[in-house]
Amino acid sequence: MYGKGIIKGLGVTLKRFVDTYLDDIAWWGRRYYNPEGIAHRSSKDARGVFTVQYPEEKLPVPEEFRYVPFLVYDEKPDGKKEIRCTSCGICAKVCPPQCIWIVRTNDPQTGRPVPEPAEFYIDADICMNCGFCAEYCPFDAIIMDHDYEIASYQRNVFNMEKLLKPASYYKSIRPLNYALNEEARKAKEAARAARAEAAGRS
């Protein structure tokens, strides 16, 4: 029969149309604006309308998600901010579009470099969100952020003030990575302490 293909296609569309209502009825009232609803609508069992209604519902991003980077500081008990970055420059060297600028100063008395950046700039209008800076930082000092709501009315060049965020924020967005890195740091410190003790004894 001529037209059978079109009718079959319309049948598929009709099935999807009916599905939008069936799933809403099955989940009566609980389908929207809660995390289980969002998870259901993003799974393989999703039927019907699967829209994530931003901004009322925000689809959670996975831990690995990378957007523009930020610098980590540890909050010391006396309230001081200890910036983890030692201005070693690896992130600036490894950045593919070279969008990181770091000024490293030398201590005027000893002449050795100060392990803290004097100035740190990231041009977010060049950053390609590749994550190399975070991947190759030996001190876990620069981390890829999850915050994607950074649209603005002018160009975006971030200086150190804008980039600094506390380690507690890092822990909240990347708990697994944070735990792994803390373990690694503690292991390194324990090894160093053991070596110092062994050296002290001998």
Binding site: D125, N129, Y148, E149, A151, S152, R155, N156
Partner: peptide, 20 residues
């Protein structure tokens, strides 16, 4: 009028920019 950084900005980021 509005600059949205990101490479590429996720659809949620674009929507946030359009809301701005």
């Amino acid at each position: 009028d509005v600059y949205i950084p990101g490479c590429p900005p996720t659809p949620q980021a674009l929507t946030a920019g359009l809301m701005k």
